[in-house]
Computed example of a mutant assay.
Amino acid sequence: MKIAMIGQKGIPAIHGGIERHVEELAVRLASHGHDVRVYTRPHFTPPTQRKYRRVSLISLPSLKTKHFDAISHTFLATLHAMRQGADIIHYHGVGPSILSFLPKLFRSRAKVVSTFHCIDRKHQKWGFMARQILRHGEWASVTHPDRTIAVSKSIQKYARGVFDREITYIPNGVEPQPAAARHRSPTLRRYNLTPGKYIVSVSRLVAHKGIHHLIAAFRNISTDHRLVIVGDGFFTDEYVQYLHELAAEDPRIIFTGFQSGQDLRDLFAHAALYVLPSEAEGLPIALLEAASYGVGIIASDIPENREVIYAGRRPIGLTFATGDVEDLQRVMLDALRRPAAMREFALRAKRLVAEQYAWDDVTRATENLYRELLGSTQPANRSNAPAQAQHPAPTTA
């Protein structure tokens, strides 16, 4: 199959859940022998980089502004993918999916897929008009494509309730991680951290991720643990400055900026707790990653977080009332005072994500969806893992 991925900023992922999702999916599809083409933006992936782990990278320009970056790039990428004769054109995100009608308008033979990653209009960075456009993008995402994927059951339920559409559930995934030896790695030495003596949060520094709530709650806790905030902003310089000002009087709080590779693995693996204070998510990859490292989890009680926390017979972490600083403070104190209980949560979490959220199973489910749309009767090889696509018969949704 010739598969075009459109909507992401690029790969390899520097930041962003969509970019990480596309990277993991594209690399695995390419390893299965498919011709996978990921469209990239020059400010994210160097235009000179044409290949990444068997995936073809196609760099096209965009209008690098907050409101026009994604849609301008999506327009050019769609035209290019149609000219190149793609079998599958796969849009990622509701904003790019606004243009998912174009292949049918131009009578392209390609089958069109959209992945509904998140209810983006809930993000605080968007103004009134942008929210209305993103709401239209939600409708477009579940209306124009031949098949729409939801990365969480919460989004699947949302599409059913708001748009009366049945869409396919295929979750985000995670790579299982080996147990980490408790030692002070170079990464920890760089930030003067001791294994098991810090709380970590990994996210883009944008307002809807709720990092300001985490800082406010941590400042009121008397503990020798440190708080490590991993990530950078994206068109959110004022918010990043606000976070630094909020944390300025507490030397226990550390901002590492963007981290990847072994540095990020070390920061995850040696943390006592991982906290996700988001006010809006799709299905948080960072939460799955924390679980895969066997770290104790605390998350806001939005439906998408609860979906993971309560995915098994018993919860795999603790939740707090979204946006409630006092409740977050109470839950963090409780977790720090009960390390044995948090270790039990962490062990359950590690097992659960390996069983239900493996990237290999996500890829097989997506590949089978493509094959169904193209009329192939030969499914991708399947493992015994339970993570499979849940979808209706093909419709215009």
Rank of each mutant, 00 (worst) to 15 (best):
F218H: 03
H270G: 01
A271M: 03
I302R: 15
F268T: 06
I309C: 08
E326H: 09
V275G: 08
I221L: 04
A291H: 05
V325I: 15
I285W: 04
A299R: 08
L267Q: 12
A311S: 14
E307N: 01
R219I: 04
A340F: 04
I285F: 11
E344C: 07
I229N: 08
D250V: 02
R226D: 07
E307D: 02
G296E: 14
R337E: 15
Y310D: 15
Y239V: 05
Q262L: 15
D263W: 02
A335C: 12
T256L: 07
A247W: 01
I285S: 13
S300K: 10
N305F: 00
R330W: 06
E307C: 03
V240S: 05
V275W: 10
D224Y: 02
R338A: 14
A290W: 05
R313E: 15
E326P: 02
L276A: 10
G296T: 11
D301P: 04
L283E: 12
D263C: 04
N220C: 04
Q259N: 06
M332A: 04
I285R: 11
R306M: 02
Q329P: 06
D224E: 14
D334N: 07
I254T: 10
N305Q: 12
V230E: 13
A280Q: 15
P303M: 10
L243I: 07
Y310S: 11
E249G: 03
L328T: 05
Y274H: 13
T236V: 03
L264S: 08
R226E: 12
K209T: 13
D301G: 06
H213V: 15
D301N: 15
L273G: 07
P284R: 02
R252T: 03
A269T: 06
Q241P: 01
G210F: 01
P284C: 03
D232Q: 11
T256I: 05
G257D: 08
H225D: 10
V275Q: 15
E281F: 00
E281D: 07
A340Q: 12
L333D: 02
T319D: 04
I316P: 03
F320T: 14
G210V: 08
I215Y: 01
R219T: 13
D224C: 01
P284Y: 01
R314N: 10
S292I: 08
R226T: 09
G296Y: 14
R306V: 00
I285C: 10
L267W: 11
L288D: 11
G233R: 00
R313H: 13
H225K: 12
L246Q: 13
P277W: 00
F345Y: 15
A217R: 04
D324V: 09
A321N: 11
T223A: 08
L283A: 07
G294E: 13
E304P: 03
Y274C: 06
F255W: 12
F258M: 11
F320C: 13
Y274D: 10
G210Y: 01
T319S: 12
Q241D: 14
A248Q: 13
L276P: 02
A335V: 13
H212T: 14
E326T: 11
R343T: 14
A216C: 02
V308A: 08
R338P: 04
T319Q: 06
